[in-house]
Computed example of a mutant assay.
Amino acid sequence: MKKTLSPMFAALTLAAAGVLPAQAQGVTGDANAGAGKIAMCIGCHGIQGYKSSFPEVYRVPKISGQNAKYITLVLEGYKKGDRKHPSMRGIAATLTEQDIADVAAYYEQNGQGQMAVALPAPAAANAQVAQLLQKGACVSCHGDNFSKPIDPGYPKIAGQYPDYLFASLKAYKDNANHTWGRSNPVMAGMAKQFSNAELKAMSDYIGSLDGELKTVPQSRFR
C-alpha cells in the first residue's frame, strides 16, 4: 500500500492545520497529577468492554497507551463543541487546560508494561478492504500497521474496538449532527467517500490488528 498522501488528502490535511485545537502553550502534563483527576473517566474507560448506549450501542474506546497529544486534542474538541457527544462535552467542560494535559499524560503511560488483551489472529485484508484503505489514505496519517501515527496528534487505531471505530467514522460523516457529529475536515472528507457498509468493513479489519491500546481495569472507588 502506498504511504504517500493523495492530492485531495494532502489539501485537506493542510486545511485542517489551522482549525484543529492546539495544545495550550506552556502547559506540561504530569501523569502523577493526572492519576488523581480521572474519577470521571474510570467509570467507562476503566471497565473492560464497557458499552455506551448513545447514539447507538458500542464499546467505549481503549485509551490507555494512546498518544497524549491526541487525547489533549480530543478533550479540547469536546470542550469547544467540535465533538458533540453530550456526556463527553459535560466532562470536558469541567477540566482546565492543566487538567486536560495531566489526564492525557496519565493515559499515555497507563498500563505500560502490561500486555494488551489478546485479539484473534487478524485476517488478511481482502482485496476490497485493501482498496478501501488505500482510497482513504488511512496509513498516510495513522502510520505503519495503523499504530505508528506520523504525528502524535493523530490516534493509534490498530486494535481499537471495531464498533467504536465504526461509530466514530459515522460521526465524522454526519459531522453536522448536533448531538453526535464531529467537526474535522480531514476525517469528514475521508468518511464521506464511503458507504456505512464500507466503513464497517474497514473498522472490522483495523480493529482486528495487534496494537498498543488497552483498557486497564480500575476500581470505581478511589
Rank of each mutant, 00 (worst) to 15 (best):
Y70V: 07
V74K: 07
L209F: 03
Y107W: 09
P120M: 07
A39R: 03
P155R: 04
K148C: 04
A171W: 00
I47Q: 13
L75Q: 05
G18E: 08
F54V: 11
L119A: 14
P152C: 00
S208I: 09
A33V: 12
Y107T: 10
A124I: 12
T4G: 09
A158F: 00
A197F: 01
D163G: 06
A158L: 07
S53G: 09
N126C: 05
G211L: 10
Y164K: 03
A35H: 04
V60I: 13
Q134H: 07
V129S: 00
A105V: 10
A105E: 09
G43E: 09
Q114P: 02
K51E: 14
A35F: 03
V74L: 13
Y106R: 08
G65E: 10
E56R: 13
M1I: 15
L75Y: 08
W180D: 12
S219N: 09
S208Q: 02
R220K: 14
T28A: 13
T4M: 11
K2C: 12
L132H: 05
K214P: 03
C138D: 10
A17C: 05
R222P: 14
E76C: 01
A68M: 12
A118H: 11
P122F: 03
A167W: 04
A121S: 12
M40F: 08
A201R: 04
P122G: 04
S183P: 00
N67K: 13
S6I: 01
